[in-house]
């Protein structure tokens, strides 16, 4: 692969929520800025921009990724999933999203897309997490509204109803 010059904008293509998309990025452009400003999706929220708050969390090839700690040029050819992929095509919320709504797992909703993507990846590995395990996963995200209680309840409820 050739060295990409800092002064030029380079083509970047990826599969975003199942659709092929492409745009241009300087090497220094963060994935969070690429998704928001170049592609135009609204769910990749930027909070701290140094990997602490977790609001920008997306999946890259199924792996949890802080979009603010990743450069757009790094994900060329990858599969990116954001919270836009969770609801059905007709807009009906996913079961996890419905559980968040039911249990007040969100208030302002700014941190929610990142948290939903973390949980989506985690619940594939562990379908029956304990409250303690969930709290450890949620510790990778900052929420200043809810105190996390509703989120924990929502996920436990979602897992219970899923397994029965």
């Amino acid at each position: 692969m050739p060295q990409l010059s800092k002064d030029a904008r380079h083509p970047v293509s990826c599969t975003l929520n199942g659709k092929e998309v492409s745009g241009y990025a300087e090497p220094r452009m963060l994935l969070s800025d690429f998704l928001t400003h170049e592609i135009g999706i609204t769910s990749c929220h930027v909070g701290c921009e140094h990997g602490v708050c977790g609001a920008c969390t997306v999946l890259v090839d199924g792996n949890i990724t802080r979009a603010c700690l990743t450069f757009a040029v790094q994900i060329d050819g990858c599969q990116i999933d954001t919270s836009e992929c969770l609801a059905n095509a007709d807009g009906e919320l996913s079961d996890l999203q419905k559980a968040f709504k039911k249990h007040h797992g969100l208030q302002c909703g700014y941190c929610t897309p990142g948290i939903l993507m973390s949980l989506t990846a985690y619940l594939k590995e562990n379908q029956d997490p304990s409250e303690q395990e969930l709290r450890e996963i949620l510790s990778g995200h900052l929420c200043r509204c809810t105190g996390y209680v509703g989120m924990v309840r929502a996920v436990l409820d979602y897992c219970k109803n899923k397994t029965t």
């Binding site: 800092k6 090497p27 220094r28 963060l30």
Partner: peptide, 13 residues
């Protein structure tokens, strides 16, 4: 907070 510009090389080996 954006990084300063840099060239980028994806190494394969």
């Amino acid at each position: 907070m954006k990084p300063k510009g840099f060239d980028y090389l994806k190494a394969t080996s």
